[in-house]
Design a binder for these strands. Structure first.
Lengths: 255, 255
DNA sequence: CTTGCAGGATTGTTCAACAATCCCTACGCT
DNA sequence: AGCGTAGGGATTGTTGAACAATCCTGCAAG
């Protein structure tokens, strides 16, 4: 999130110096981060959500300590982080694995998404006056990002943009706990996408629907938006469920 | 928590044996527990939720390693556990503290409670036929436990029973993620109770209301129950907020 | 009154080691 | 041969000590 790009080298004016201080502060904030453990967690999170680590894969400790160049203890803290995000599961004395979600999880996840997101949209009506103007800006950006990615045939990027759309939608509620929950829910959902063979059919229909949703919100037709969103999520759930069954779900092996 | 609706895997056992296996599995799961870290976390969790560690208190590492008889690394893993439950907060390079929630948190927590609990009750109508008979049993037990504790003037115990009532209420939805979220929400809520001077006024009104709610559920008047619950939670929120303001929130502390 | 700087205390992180547990294989028994 | 069982090897769980980085406190100087 770079603000105005300030590549001024010799400018020592007051305003220039303040801008410099702000960039430094941003850098510090980014590097601070409780450091090693969270940095390792970031890398692992990306590997998982981008599919490099498929569901069911085991994460060996010694192997990852070498790759990530962190101690085993620090790595375990990173594991704990991701465990509580739902991106990893611990099996006692056996190690950590990327979880394999099944249809029951899909239903569970979508039930929560419907409850939270629809409620957020409905709740917007009650506080419409106090909503600042640029509040819908991030949603608009996400819609355009999805459309751009679609034109470039980058369907995973479309999925990412669509997810950010929903994250930003929840963000309208100004609820830290809802934000955190949604982050976890969407991370788990991303886990499911990797068992889908055709990401295009999965994501394409929702580009236009996201734009429609955005326009409804912009027009302050909140009740209509809520109803649309409800059906939207039902359809999305069905899409994933059918793709899941076509793909030939692996029945519970030994667990 | 399983609904017994498991797939017909193998018909070589009857229901009696399955029940026995489940009790053993529960025992094993309780004793196993990934051990040290989670055991330490359990002790700390109880100390926090029962008020031994008041909001704002700092948890020294060396001090607790001696008391809990675990290594510093293990203790830190326990800290991480509790951090992600919202019962502890990390301040970088300064240590872990019991969080001090404010009115904004109360509003946030109750907003989520309303969304989740009301939706669960409403959702019961759709699957009324498939609900087994004894499903409301735990709720009934909690109601009676609260009434018994009230007769004995044990108001903190009343609060505990009331909370279990709500946890069991959410449990009716058979959603593992809702259960987990509710556990976190109620734990945070308990944090708030300790700044309230008079637990009696806080908990007493809701004993009868819980019983009323239970009876509505038993009579399958789900829509009415949902409406009651909504108002119930609004009232409870107001009670905490006013108690909070009367108590005179103390921002400055020791500086 | 503010500023700057040591000192001590606490946290962040790493390392190496040992104990406990699981998986797999090979052995012995009926 | 089939089956239960013991052993070996690998991996995880936990510990303790050590060092670096950071914060807080108190004191001295301007």
């Amino acid at each position: 999130m770079s603000t105005g790009g300030a590549e001024d080298t010799a400018a020592d004016t007051d305003t220039g110096r303040q801008a410099w201080l702000r960039t430094v502060a941003a850098d510090v904030a980014r590097l601070d981060r409780s450091s090693s453990a969270e940095r390792a967690a970031d890398i692992l999170r990306r590997s998982i959500t981008e599919g490099a680590l498929p569901p069911g894969a085991q994460l060996s400790e010694v192997e990852l300590t070498e790759v990530l160049e962190v101690s085993r203890n620090t790595l375990r803290e990173a594991f704990r982080l991701l465990t509580h995000e739902g991106l990893l599961v611990y099996k006692l004395h056996r190690g950590v694995f990327v979880p394999e979600l099944d249809e029951h999880d899909v239903i569970d996840l979508y039930r929560l998404r419907r409850v939270l997101e629809v409620d957020v949209v409905r709740g917007l009506a009650d506080r419409d006056p106090e909503l600042p103007g640029g509040r819908l800006e991030p949603l608009h950006d996400d819609v355009e990002a999805a459309e751009a990615a679609a034109s470039a045939d980058r369907w995973p990027a479309v999925g990412t943009a669509n997810m950010r759309f929903h994250q930003h939608l929840i963000g309208l509620a100004d609820s830290a706990r809802m934000d955190a929950m949604t982050g976890r829910l969407l991370a788990e959902l991303r886990l499911l996408f990797h068992v889908i063979a055709t990401p295009r059919e999965l994501h394409e229909p929702y580009i236009a629907r996201n734009r429609g949703l955005f326009e409804l919100l912009e027009a302050r037709k909140y009740e209509q938006a809520a109803a649309d969103l409800h059906q939207y999520l039902l359809d999305s759930e069905q899409g994933i469920l059918t793709a899941f069954r076509d793909k030939g779900l692996r029945p519970p092996a030994t667990t």
